[in-house]
Design a protein around this nucleic acid. Structure first.
Lengths: 193, 193
DNA sequence: GACTTTTATGTACAATCGTACATAATAATA
DNA sequence: TATTATTATGTACGATTGTACATAAAAGTC
């Protein structure tokens, strides 16, 4: 694991064990936890880990680098086995919340009902991240209110004609009779098994 | 939203926007970020949010409580219009990261290649949350190494026979010749449009 | 109108922070 | 063996921390 001595590795494992993805507390607090008598012991380990980019600063707090924690993107190129895959070099860390902008105030979640979008792999019960918007572009997947009812469909806009298109041959296109109000555009979906 | 004034809510939204699930920095740092001239402005907002359990302490660092992170679930019962739906009472806040356990150390992400699972709505490019495990139950979706190659399939275990089942009629079942090593069980998927 | 709460700024201060520097025993290495 | 790196403890210090207290304009409430 990246040229750490035994003690350094023990120290790092203790950090992982106790703080995980959370911000690391003060040197003194870690000193107390690990039973050192001087916070400088901790500071010296910190310097080692910092130099090796195992811990890094963010908003003036220290964190264990994401490369050493959590949901790393598993590279399909890796063939050498699981262990090596987990301890390999720099991997991307992905947050679904971040990718689908869940913590923005203009984004909310819609739960799919029905099977009108199955051909696009959108199944009943799926969670859809919806970004609030009154406008959409051709082929965007939108949450819309057409003639009074909510629905998730592909938005079509062609030759000055506007309609909603399901992704299921068994359903017809929806041409708005009175009104078509777009509530938001889908950013992505999440499905829990 | 839990009896916050307009300003308090703006303050809180700014925190969410800037720090999300990370630890909050010092009062001074937030003061600078939000353009206040006294860190006490921030301290007073902090007191309000603390009292309402919107932010909480952990390892002597402050975090936004999990209950307030993530996006709100859009209730399909709401028919009265978009505005009211957005400003309603207590809503479920959903975090995809939390649901699919992305911040656990034994969970990683695998990117789907190929179309062997399309019938289950798992498409090429989808992100799959995989919980590390050597065992699986019948009908779990697993990431496995069969005869040397990685693949995402449905794990089948019936009458002492084990095989991997694709979700696409064009593909055959995979019966392990030499070895079948399960790497993990899929918890769910994310797709970004 | 009278009263209260909210919002914003400012000053003061003890406690704690991280860093720097020093010392020395131990472990690793050449 | 000689030399270097690691590990552990300690002291010192300026910077920063969060809290407390005070003031006052603005907004909200009765």
């Amino acid at each position: 694991m990246k040229d750490l001595t035994l003690k350094q590795n023990q120290f790092f494992e203790a950090l992982k064990e106790n703080y995980g993805k959370d911000a690391l507390p003060s040197l003194s607090a870690i000193k107390e936890l690990l039973g050192y008598k001087s916070k400088n012991s901790v500071a010296q380990y910190f310097n080692v880990l910092k130099k090796k980019n195992i811990i890094e600063e963010k908003n003036s707090r220290y964190y264990i680098s994401q490369d050493f924690l959590g949901a790393r993107l598993f590279s399909s190129k890796v063939r050498a086995g699981f262990a090596s895959a987990m301890e390999d070099e720099v991997e991307n860390l992905i947050s679904f919340d971040r990718e689908l902008e869940l913590n923005k105030t203009n984004v909310f979640i819609f739960r799919v009902s029905g099977d009108s979008m199955v051909d696009l792999g959108i199944f009943e019960g799926d969670y859809v991240s919806i970004k609030k918007s009154s406008y959409a572009q051709d082929k965007d997947i939108v949450l819309a209110n057409i003639d009074g009812g909510f629905t998730l469909k592909t938005y079509r806009n062609k030759n000055n004609k506007v309609w909603l298109e399901p992704a299921n041959k068994n359903y017809p296109n929806l041409y708005p009779r009175s009104s078509l109000v777009i509530f938001g555009v889908a950013l992505g979906i999440m499905r829990k098994f």
